[in-house]
Write a protein that binds this DNA or RNA. Sequence first.
DNA 1: TCAATCTTCGCCATTTATTGCCAAATTATT
DNA 2: AATAATTTGGCAATAAATGGCGAAGATTGA
Lengths: 150, 150
Amino acid sequence: MAKIDRINQKILHELLRDGRLPNTELADRVGLSPSACLRRVQELERQGVIKGYRAVLDPVALGNGFVAYVTVGLSDHTKAAQEGFERSVARYDEVRECHNITGTVEYLLRVEAEDLVAYKRFHTDKLGTLAQVHQIVTHVVMGSPKDERA
Amino acid sequence: MAKIDRINQKILHELLRDGRLPNTELADRVGLSPSACLRRVQELERQGVIKGYRAVLDPVALGNGFVAYVTVGLSDHTKAAQEGFERSVARYDEVRECHNITGTVEYLLRVEAEDLVAYKRFHTDKLGTLAQVHQIVTHVVMGSPKDERA
DNA sequence: TCAATCTTCGCCATTTATTGCCAAATTATT
DNA sequence: AATAATTTGGCAATAAATGGCGAAGATTGA
Protein backbone atom coordinates (compact mmCIF):
# COMPACT_ATOMS: atom_id res chain seq x y z
CA MET A 1 0.00 0.00 0.00
CA ALA A 2 2.19 2.81 1.22
CA LYS A 3 5.35 2.49 -0.82
CA ILE A 4 7.73 5.25 0.10
CA ASP A 5 10.44 5.31 -2.54
CA ARG A 6 13.30 7.77 -2.68
CA ILE A 7 11.25 10.43 -4.43
CA ASN A 8 8.36 10.22 -2.01
CA GLN A 9 10.82 10.50 0.84
CA LYS A 10 12.16 13.70 -0.62
CA ILE A 11 8.63 14.99 -1.10
CA LEU A 12 7.75 14.29 2.52
CA HIS A 13 11.00 15.78 3.70
CA GLU A 14 10.39 18.99 1.81
CA LEU A 15 6.76 19.27 2.88
CA LEU A 16 7.73 18.67 6.48
CA ARG A 17 10.03 21.65 6.29
CA ASP A 18 7.64 23.83 4.32
CA GLY A 19 4.08 22.67 3.98
CA ARG A 20 3.26 25.52 1.63
CA LEU A 21 5.96 24.78 -0.89
CA PRO A 22 4.35 25.38 -4.30
CA ASN A 23 3.92 22.20 -6.27
CA THR A 24 6.03 23.60 -9.10
CA GLU A 25 8.93 24.28 -6.75
CA LEU A 26 8.49 20.92 -5.03
CA ALA A 27 8.49 19.17 -8.41
CA ASP A 28 11.69 20.95 -9.26
CA ARG A 29 13.43 19.92 -6.04
CA VAL A 30 12.52 16.25 -6.34
CA GLY A 31 13.20 16.14 -10.06
CA LEU A 32 9.72 15.53 -11.41
CA SER A 33 7.28 17.38 -13.62
CA PRO A 34 4.62 19.35 -11.73
CA SER A 35 1.81 17.02 -12.73
CA ALA A 36 3.64 13.85 -11.74
CA CYS A 37 4.67 15.44 -8.48
CA LEU A 38 1.15 16.58 -7.74
CA ARG A 39 -0.22 13.12 -8.36
CA ARG A 40 2.24 11.69 -5.84
CA VAL A 41 1.35 14.26 -3.20
CA GLN A 42 -2.35 13.64 -3.72
CA GLU A 43 -1.79 9.91 -3.40
CA LEU A 44 0.16 10.40 -0.17
CA GLU A 45 -2.71 12.49 1.16
CA ARG A 46 -5.26 9.90 0.11
CA GLN A 47 -3.28 7.13 1.78
CA GLY A 48 -3.09 9.11 4.98
CA VAL A 49 0.70 9.39 5.00
CA ILE A 50 0.17 13.14 4.84
CA LYS A 51 -2.50 13.74 7.45
CA GLY A 52 -2.80 17.45 6.83
CA TYR A 53 -1.05 20.78 6.92
CA ARG A 54 -0.66 23.24 9.76
CA ALA A 55 0.62 26.73 10.26
CA VAL A 56 3.30 26.90 12.93
CA LEU A 57 2.45 29.78 15.23
CA ASP A 58 4.64 31.57 17.73
CA PRO A 59 3.21 30.96 21.24
CA VAL A 60 4.75 34.19 22.52
CA ALA A 61 3.24 36.36 19.78
CA LEU A 62 -0.08 34.66 20.45
CA GLY A 63 0.08 35.54 24.11
CA ASN A 64 1.08 32.07 25.25
CA GLY A 65 4.48 32.77 26.71
CA PHE A 66 4.26 29.97 29.24
CA VAL A 67 4.76 26.36 28.18
CA ALA A 68 5.04 23.38 30.49
CA TYR A 69 5.01 19.62 30.37
CA VAL A 70 2.88 18.19 33.12
CA THR A 71 2.80 14.61 34.32
CA VAL A 72 -0.49 13.45 35.75
CA GLY A 73 -1.11 10.38 37.87
CA LEU A 74 -4.63 9.06 38.34
CA SER A 75 -5.99 7.74 41.61
CA ASP A 76 -7.22 4.55 40.02
CA HIS A 77 -6.50 2.84 36.75
CA THR A 78 -9.96 1.89 35.61
CA LYS A 79 -11.07 2.46 32.07
CA ALA A 80 -13.77 4.79 33.31
CA ALA A 81 -11.28 6.99 35.14
CA GLN A 82 -9.03 7.23 32.09
CA GLU A 83 -11.88 8.08 29.77
CA GLY A 84 -13.22 10.68 32.17
CA PHE A 85 -9.82 12.32 32.44
CA GLU A 86 -9.25 12.27 28.70
CA ARG A 87 -12.64 13.81 28.06
CA SER A 88 -11.84 16.62 30.47
CA VAL A 89 -8.46 17.55 29.05
CA ALA A 90 -9.93 17.47 25.54
CA ARG A 91 -12.06 20.42 26.62
CA TYR A 92 -9.19 22.46 28.05
CA ASP A 93 -7.73 24.82 25.46
CA GLU A 94 -4.51 25.11 27.45
CA VAL A 95 -3.81 21.42 26.90
CA ARG A 96 -2.27 21.11 23.46
CA GLU A 97 -1.15 17.50 23.79
CA CYS A 98 -2.10 14.61 26.00
CA HIS A 99 -0.06 11.43 25.82
CA ASN A 100 -0.77 8.18 27.59
CA ILE A 101 2.65 6.94 28.66
CA THR A 102 4.35 4.11 30.49
CA GLY A 103 6.04 4.79 33.79
CA THR A 104 5.07 5.79 37.28
CA VAL A 105 2.34 8.13 36.04
CA GLU A 106 -0.26 7.70 33.31
CA TYR A 107 -0.26 10.95 31.38
CA LEU A 108 2.06 13.58 29.98
CA LEU A 109 0.46 16.87 28.96
CA ARG A 110 1.82 19.82 27.06
CA VAL A 111 0.18 22.95 28.42
CA GLU A 112 0.39 26.44 26.94
CA ALA A 113 -0.78 29.47 28.88
CA GLU A 114 -0.35 33.22 28.75
CA ASP A 115 1.88 33.41 31.80
CA LEU A 116 2.58 31.83 35.16
CA VAL A 117 -0.55 33.36 36.67
CA ALA A 118 -2.73 31.94 33.93
CA TYR A 119 -1.03 28.59 34.37
CA LYS A 120 -1.69 28.58 38.10
CA ARG A 121 -5.35 29.24 37.32
CA PHE A 122 -5.40 26.27 34.99
CA HIS A 123 -3.54 24.13 37.51
CA THR A 124 -5.80 24.97 40.41
CA ASP A 125 -9.21 25.53 38.85
CA LYS A 126 -9.12 22.96 36.09
CA LEU A 127 -6.62 20.14 36.55
CA GLY A 128 -6.84 20.29 40.33
CA THR A 129 -10.59 19.88 40.39
CA LEU A 130 -10.68 16.64 38.42
CA ALA A 131 -11.71 13.78 40.66
CA GLN A 132 -9.55 11.24 38.86
CA VAL A 133 -6.34 13.21 39.28
CA HIS A 134 -4.08 12.05 42.05
CA GLN A 135 -0.71 13.63 41.27
CA ILE A 136 0.44 16.60 39.22
CA VAL A 137 4.06 17.47 38.48
CA THR A 138 4.86 20.56 36.43
CA HIS A 139 7.98 20.89 34.31
CA VAL A 140 8.30 24.41 32.95
CA VAL A 141 9.87 24.66 29.50
CA MET A 142 12.79 27.05 29.66
CA GLY A 143 13.76 26.53 26.06
CA SER A 144 13.51 24.13 23.14
CA PRO A 145 16.88 23.65 21.44
CA LYS A 146 15.17 21.39 18.94
CA ASP A 147 11.52 21.46 18.04
CA GLU A 148 10.21 19.74 14.95
CA ARG A 149 6.71 19.33 16.18
CA ALA A 150 4.36 18.90 13.26
CA MET B 1 3.40 45.50 17.03
CA ALA B 2 1.44 42.28 16.89
CA LYS B 3 -2.17 43.33 17.09
CA ILE B 4 -4.36 40.29 16.87
CA ASP B 5 -7.89 41.48 16.21
CA ARG B 6 -10.89 39.27 15.69
CA ILE B 7 -10.18 38.76 12.00
CA ASN B 8 -6.55 37.82 12.53
CA GLN B 9 -7.63 35.36 15.19
CA LYS B 10 -9.94 33.72 12.68
CA ILE B 11 -7.15 33.66 10.11
CA LEU B 12 -4.77 31.98 12.54
CA HIS B 13 -7.44 29.56 13.64
CA GLU B 14 -8.14 28.50 10.08
CA LEU B 15 -4.47 28.21 9.14
CA LEU B 16 -3.78 26.17 12.25
CA ARG B 17 -6.39 23.70 11.12
CA ASP B 18 -5.38 23.74 7.46
CA GLY B 19 -2.14 25.43 6.53
CA ARG B 20 -2.79 24.93 2.84
CA LEU B 21 -6.13 26.68 2.76
CA PRO B 22 -6.17 28.70 -0.48
CA ASN B 23 -6.16 32.42 0.12
CA THR B 24 -9.45 32.82 -1.71
CA GLU B 25 -11.16 30.31 0.55
CA LEU B 26 -9.53 31.78 3.65
CA ALA B 27 -10.67 35.26 2.64
CA ASP B 28 -14.18 33.94 2.22
CA ARG B 29 -14.22 32.33 5.66
CA VAL B 30 -12.97 35.40 7.50
CA GLY B 31 -15.11 37.78 5.46
CA LEU B 32 -12.46 39.71 3.56
CA SER B 33 -11.47 40.16 -0.04
CA PRO B 34 -8.58 37.96 -1.20
CA SER B 35 -6.19 40.87 -1.49
CA ALA B 36 -6.91 42.25 1.99
CA CYS B 37 -6.70 38.77 3.44
CA LEU B 38 -3.40 38.03 1.73
CA ARG B 39 -1.89 41.24 3.10
CA ARG B 40 -2.86 40.24 6.63
CA VAL B 41 -1.38 36.77 6.26
CA GLN B 42 1.84 38.17 4.84
CA GLU B 43 2.04 40.65 7.69
CA LEU B 44 1.55 37.88 10.25
CA GLU B 45 4.34 35.94 8.57
CA ARG B 46 6.60 38.98 8.52
CA GLN B 47 5.94 39.65 12.20
CA GLY B 48 6.78 36.07 13.05
CA VAL B 49 3.36 35.22 14.43
CA ILE B 50 3.19 32.62 11.69
CA LYS B 51 6.58 30.96 11.87
CA GLY B 52 6.01 28.60 8.97
CA TYR B 53 3.96 25.75 7.61
CA ARG B 54 4.37 22.02 8.04
CA ALA B 55 2.85 18.87 6.65
CA VAL B 56 1.52 16.60 9.37
CA LEU B 57 2.76 13.10 8.65
CA ASP B 58 1.56 9.80 10.03
CA PRO B 59 4.45 8.24 12.02
CA VAL B 60 3.10 4.74 11.48
CA ALA B 61 2.84 5.11 7.70
CA LEU B 62 6.36 6.50 7.75
CA GLY B 63 7.65 3.48 9.58
CA ASN B 64 7.96 5.24 12.91
CA GLY B 65 5.57 3.19 14.97
CA PHE B 66 7.47 3.77 18.19
CA VAL B 67 7.20 7.07 20.01
CA ALA B 68 8.61 7.84 23.45
CA TYR B 69 9.25 10.77 25.72
CA VAL B 70 12.65 10.50 27.32
CA THR B 71 13.92 12.48 30.30
CA VAL B 72 17.64 13.06 30.38
CA GLY B 73 19.74 14.17 33.33
CA LEU B 74 23.24 15.51 32.80
CA SER B 75 26.18 14.70 35.02
CA ASP B 76 27.11 18.34 35.45
CA HIS B 77 25.25 21.54 34.82
CA THR B 78 27.90 23.59 33.09
CA LYS B 79 27.08 25.58 30.00
CA ALA B 80 29.57 23.52 28.05
CA ALA B 81 27.87 20.26 28.98
CA GLN B 82 24.47 21.59 28.00
CA GLU B 83 25.68 22.92 24.68
CA GLY B 84 27.49 19.70 23.92
CA PHE B 85 24.39 17.67 24.64
CA GLU B 86 22.13 19.93 22.61
CA ARG B 87 24.49 19.80 19.67
CA SER B 88 24.43 16.01 19.77
CA VAL B 89 20.67 15.58 19.88
CA ALA B 90 20.33 18.11 17.08
CA ARG B 91 22.12 15.58 14.89
CA TYR B 92 19.94 12.62 15.85
CA ASP B 93 17.05 12.20 13.45
CA GLU B 94 15.12 10.15 16.00
CA VAL B 95 14.93 13.17 18.31
CA ARG B 96 12.05 15.29 17.09
CA GLU B 97 11.90 17.61 20.08
CA CYS B 98 14.29 18.59 22.83
CA HIS B 99 13.00 20.74 25.66
CA ASN B 100 15.03 22.22 28.48
CA ILE B 101 12.78 21.86 31.51
CA THR B 102 12.69 22.54 35.22
CA GLY B 103 12.65 19.64 37.65
CA THR B 104 14.93 16.85 38.74
CA VAL B 105 16.30 16.38 35.21
CA GLU B 106 17.35 18.88 32.58
CA TYR B 107 15.87 17.64 29.32
CA LEU B 108 12.73 16.13 27.89
CA LEU B 109 13.04 14.56 24.45
CA ARG B 110 10.44 13.27 22.05
CA VAL B 111 11.92 10.34 20.17
CA GLU B 112 10.41 8.57 17.16
CA ALA B 113 11.76 5.26 15.91
CA GLU B 114 10.66 2.43 13.68
CA ASP B 115 10.11 -0.03 16.50
CA LEU B 116 11.36 -1.07 19.91
CA VAL B 117 14.50 -2.60 18.43
CA ALA B 118 15.37 0.59 16.60
CA TYR B 119 14.71 2.54 19.75
CA LYS B 120 17.01 0.34 21.79
CA ARG B 121 19.70 0.96 19.19
CA PHE B 122 19.20 4.71 19.56
CA HIS B 123 19.15 4.40 23.34
CA THR B 124 22.32 2.35 23.56
CA ASP B 125 24.45 3.51 20.64
CA LYS B 126 23.55 7.18 20.57
CA LEU B 127 22.11 8.57 23.80
CA GLY B 128 24.04 6.17 25.96
CA THR B 129 27.40 7.09 24.50
CA LEU B 130 27.14 10.81 25.25
CA ALA B 131 29.61 11.74 27.96
CA GLN B 132 27.34 14.40 29.43
CA VAL B 133 24.41 12.07 29.98
CA HIS B 134 23.95 10.80 33.50
CA GLN B 135 20.41 9.48 33.60
CA ILE B 136 17.90 8.32 31.00
CA VAL B 137 14.26 7.47 31.69
CA THR B 138 12.05 6.28 28.83
CA HIS B 139 8.29 6.79 28.76
CA VAL B 140 6.75 4.92 25.86
CA VAL B 141 3.73 6.62 24.29
CA MET B 142 0.84 4.17 24.25
CA GLY B 143 -1.58 6.68 22.78
CA SER B 144 -2.29 10.37 22.37
CA PRO B 145 -5.91 11.18 23.17
CA LYS B 146 -5.19 14.78 22.23
CA ASP B 147 -2.48 15.95 19.91
CA GLU B 148 -2.51 19.43 18.48
CA ARG B 149 1.19 19.61 17.85
CA ALA B 150 1.92 22.22 15.25
C1' DT C 1 14.08 -13.24 -24.31
C1' DC C 2 10.07 -11.27 -25.81
C1' DA C 3 5.56 -9.54 -25.73
C1' DA C 4 1.49 -8.09 -23.15
C1' DT C 5 0.12 -5.33 -19.36
C1' DC C 6 0.18 -2.04 -16.04
C1' DT C 7 2.25 2.01 -14.04
C1' DT C 8 4.23 6.44 -14.09
C1' DC C 9 5.91 9.98 -16.71
C1' DG C 10 6.10 14.59 -19.29
C1' DC C 11 3.66 17.81 -22.14
C1' DC C 12 -0.17 20.69 -23.03
C1' DA C 13 -4.62 23.17 -22.31
C1' DT C 14 -7.87 24.78 -18.99
C1' DT C 15 -9.23 26.28 -14.66
C1' DT C 16 -8.09 28.41 -10.41
C1' DA C 17 -5.27 31.09 -7.28
C1' DT C 18 -1.84 34.66 -6.22
C1' DT C 19 -0.30 39.20 -6.20
C1' DG C 20 0.49 44.18 -7.21
C1' DC C 21 -1.95 48.52 -8.09
C1' DC C 22 -5.18 52.18 -7.36
C1' DA C 23 -9.30 54.42 -5.93
C1' DA C 24 -12.82 54.25 -2.31
C1' DA C 25 -14.02 53.59 2.36
C1' DT C 26 -13.06 53.31 7.08
C1' DT C 27 -10.68 54.66 11.21
C1' DA C 28 -7.80 57.62 13.91
C1' DT C 29 -5.97 62.36 14.98
C1' DT C 30 -6.05 67.08 15.80
C1' DA D 1 -15.46 68.53 11.60
C1' DA D 2 -11.59 68.36 8.67
C1' DT D 3 -7.42 66.01 7.70
C1' DA D 4 -4.24 62.26 7.78
C1' DA D 5 -3.22 57.43 7.96
C1' DT D 6 -4.79 52.63 7.36
C1' DT D 7 -7.26 49.29 5.42
C1' DT D 8 -10.31 47.68 2.09
C1' DG D 9 -12.30 45.86 -2.46
C1' DG D 10 -12.05 45.41 -7.37
C1' DC D 11 -9.34 44.69 -11.30
C1' DA D 12 -5.71 42.95 -14.28
C1' DA D 13 -1.53 40.41 -14.99
C1' DT D 14 1.14 36.67 -13.54
C1' DA D 15 1.74 32.21 -11.67
C1' DA D 16 0.19 27.79 -10.06
C1' DA D 17 -2.89 23.75 -9.86
C1' DT D 18 -5.21 20.26 -12.22
C1' DG D 19 -6.80 16.84 -15.62
C1' DG D 20 -6.37 14.56 -20.24
C1' DC D 21 -3.48 12.10 -23.37
C1' DG D 22 0.05 9.65 -25.60
C1' DA D 23 4.82 7.90 -24.71
C1' DA D 24 8.39 5.87 -21.92
C1' DG D 25 9.47 2.63 -18.45
C1' DA D 26 8.79 -1.24 -15.36
C1' DT D 27 6.68 -5.80 -14.39
C1' DT D 28 4.89 -10.24 -15.35
C1' DG D 29 4.42 -14.54 -17.54
C1' DA D 30 5.18 -17.53 -21.21
